[in-house]
Amino acid sequence: MKFVVGIVCVALINLGMAGAASAAIVDTSALVTPDRAADMGVVRTQLDRADVRAKMTEMGVDAAAVDSRLASLSDRELHKLAVDLQNAPAGGDVVWIIGAVFIVLIILELTGVIDIFKKT
């Protein structure tokens, strides 16, 4: 009997702690840049998550892997993906025809016809 009471007590204490931790401590990521986090409410985050999950599955990511990928993201990152999953740079392959364009660019740069670093 004592044993059961002990388990119940531990469970209750854990419950209290988990409740407190999830309820009121604010993630540091919500505090680093308050203006950027302005629309990062709970509802917004849930919408972002559903949105990104659907898009990623549609884009060929294995359904089982999607949740694990989303789990690594902060709310800010999730929002960034929700906004820009289709158009954000996606580093992939380089085929020779692209190499040719690049070589022309390099030659133009080297010869001073263009100077892409002028502004910096």
Partner: peptide, 23 residues
């Protein structure tokens, strides 16, 4: 590959490249 590759985009996104090391 299952962590950062996005098949329909034939590539990987910067946000996921930054997030993946956390695993």
């Amino acid at each position: 590959v299952p962590v950062v590759y996005l098949p329909a985009r034939h590539g990987s996104l910067q946000v996921e490249m930054l997030a993946a090391p956390r695993k």
